[in-house]
Design a protein around this nucleic acid. Structure first.
Lengths: 340, 340
DNA sequence: TTGCGTGTTGACAACGTTGTCATGAATGTC
DNA sequence: GACATTCATGACAACGTTGTCAACACGCAA
């Protein structure tokens, strides 16, 4: 049968190529009757416009890129899903681009990606989204972009973004632990290359301050967003003269490491130790006990970022938008044991 | 600066468009000296061929699709990564396409995808890869495809594939448990829509048979590839008059559910109960205790599938290929407690 | 009647690339 | 030396679409 082209549609509807093009692109100036005739022909022939031809001819392109370097598959899949939803809705293509955030020529790499695949713009996930130098370079290449970043408020720095209030979410978790009665709460940092790490720490700090709980630097350990650092960090905290009664891991993987270390040390979670994570990964639901954590609607965030990007490409003047993760209480937290 | 086109390269190298095209596509019949001159011009101008124009003009396309409907993000990310590696190497684009494997008009959906995005072919992940009716429809649409399937041997049914020997891997796990001394080994099925499920069961069965361990149907429960079914299944097994001393969950999620159920029942893994999973997901490394499981090199498998597909598109006559997962022994398995 | 604005339509070129075919030069064969 | 064969190269059309511009029909005011 072959594939129907705009030419076949035009012939069938007895109009010119251009008129069909107008109908497809919802341009004005087509009589209702003509439009209907063309529509019928399109359906009869099951015609679909050819993306290559389209983006070749119009300087515009009909695809965006999703750029990430994040070892967390749940996060990435959710980001992809959100972006895809919007792309399908808007008739766009999506080009995924995992990359190395520490790569030496990242800006050039992304420029080449945009050129080669004729992308209309990029959605940047953390940590690329937080490297201002990179953003500036991309802006110099005239590449439209939308960032997903961790921030307590709209940065208003000219780069459009969707911002996630990690600080507030970490505040909520810490406040919850304090309300349970915990006064010594350990904090395990995530990787410094992610802006979410200091944000989460700030939330922790703020809650302690506001509730008048002293901040003991002994209880705060640096590390990475990894199981192993959670395990190691927890072991160090257990060895303190006055160990914490609760540990807040900066993400679920860290918290999983804490759970494992607690098991190894013979501590019973949550009775001997409360543990909280961050991210609401499936792990947090399936661990034992299941983890108290913070849920961000990654898919929605990504949808929003894609929408923002496409609106920007269409020349719209669109506002940034913020999301606040919500506290999810599960079985890994409880009031501390009464002092003996 | 704008983007350099083949025309600019031709001017700079003082040759015709066609000659540049020949150099790019590694066609024969270009003098070494000319080729070098063109290459230099390409590098000076940092020229990259435009994918849209290319695929518009040549009937050939320079992108393949990856089709999946699998709730396991680790698996999907690995599949994507493998396919991307090959695509970058070969100068192809990759279109990801998550879809609903039970959708009513899947074949049409995929045909439209291929047409719209001008895909040269598809890599199908399970369970789409196992639905023969779908394969036939796609073949009728002349869509080149490569499947990733679960099979003990090359099916030789005309549809190219990469096959993973789940049966053998399940055999290895079961045999290992038997060698530890287990005689009552529970088996929790995965979802029936995945061909890997019966394959894994067959491996379990075969090991019991070969080692002369009686197969007790009471110990075999159906379910899905989910944490909850693992939890429920384990609870039922614990309630038997003569409960199992080991449980083999058809994947790591099921095994995670078993771990949780064991915790809830006060059973100490691995001393009171051995647990084995399948897949080597990060969960299996981070659970407590970490899970004995089976590792498949998903990224390699996907790479191979993509290579097979591209070779097929190029008209090569390529052989199917098999992969065997390998046994990974961790802390969740041990010899059974001596009978009291 | 003329002139003008508006709404609808089509002819044609162009996007950047590759396929087809033609051309001329170099080489081999008798 | 004549002719066939191969090699290297280029001119040109074509892929399917959209942008530009012109043309036409219509209604309305002068």
């Amino acid at each position: 049968m072959g594939t129907a082209t705009i030419r076949d549609v035009a012939r069938q509807a007895k109009v010119s190529l251009k008129t069909v093009s107008r109908v497809i692109n919802r341009e004005g100036s087509v009589r209702e009757e003509t439009r209907a005739r063309v529509q019928r022909a399109i359906e009869q022939l099951d015609y679909r416009p050819d993306l290559s031809a389209r983006s070749l001819r119009s300087a515009k392109s009909y695809a965006i890129g999703l750029v990430y370097d994040n070892p967390n598959p749940y996060y990435i899949i959710a980001m992809q899903q959100g972006a895809l939803t919007v792309c399908r809705e808007m008739g766009f293509g999506l080009q995924i681009h995992p990359c190395n955030s520490r790569g030496p020529r990242l800006a050039e790499e992304l420029r080449d990606l945009v050129r080669r695949s004729r992308l209309a713009g990029l959605v940047l996930a953390p940590p690329m989204s937080e490297r201002v130098a990179l953003l500036r370079e991309l802006a110099a290449y005239n590449i439209p972009l939308v960032r997903v970043i961790s921030a307590a408020e709209d940065p208003r720095d000219g780069f459009p973004c969707v911002f996630v209030d990690d600080r507030d979410a970490a505040y909520a978790i810490t406040a919850y632990l304090i309300q349970l009665g915990h006064l010594r709460i350990g904090f395990l940092w995530g990787g410094k290359q992610h802006r979410s790490s200091p944000e989460r720490y700030k939330g922790y700090e703020k809650a302690l301050r506001e509730y008048g709980v002293p901040l003991d630097e002994e209880l705060v350990l640096e590390g990475d967003y990894s199981f192993d650092d959670g395990f190691r960090g927890a072991r160090r905290l257990f060895g303190l003269a006055e160990p914490p009664t609760a540990i807040f891991g900066s993400n679920d993987e860290i918290a999983a490491g804490v759970l494992a270390a607690a098991r190894a040390a013979g501590l019973h979670v949550p009775y001997d130790l409360s543990v909280a994570g961050f991210e609401d990964s499936p792990f947090s639901r399936h661990s034992w006990p299941s983890l108290t954590t913070s849920r961000q609607r990654t898919e929605l965030i990504s949808e929003h970022a894609a929408r923002l990007l496409i609106a920007q490409i269409h020349g719209g003047n669109v506002a940034n938008e913020g999301f606040s993760p919500e506290l999810v209480v599960r079985g890994s937290t409880a009031p501390p044991r009464p002092r003996q």
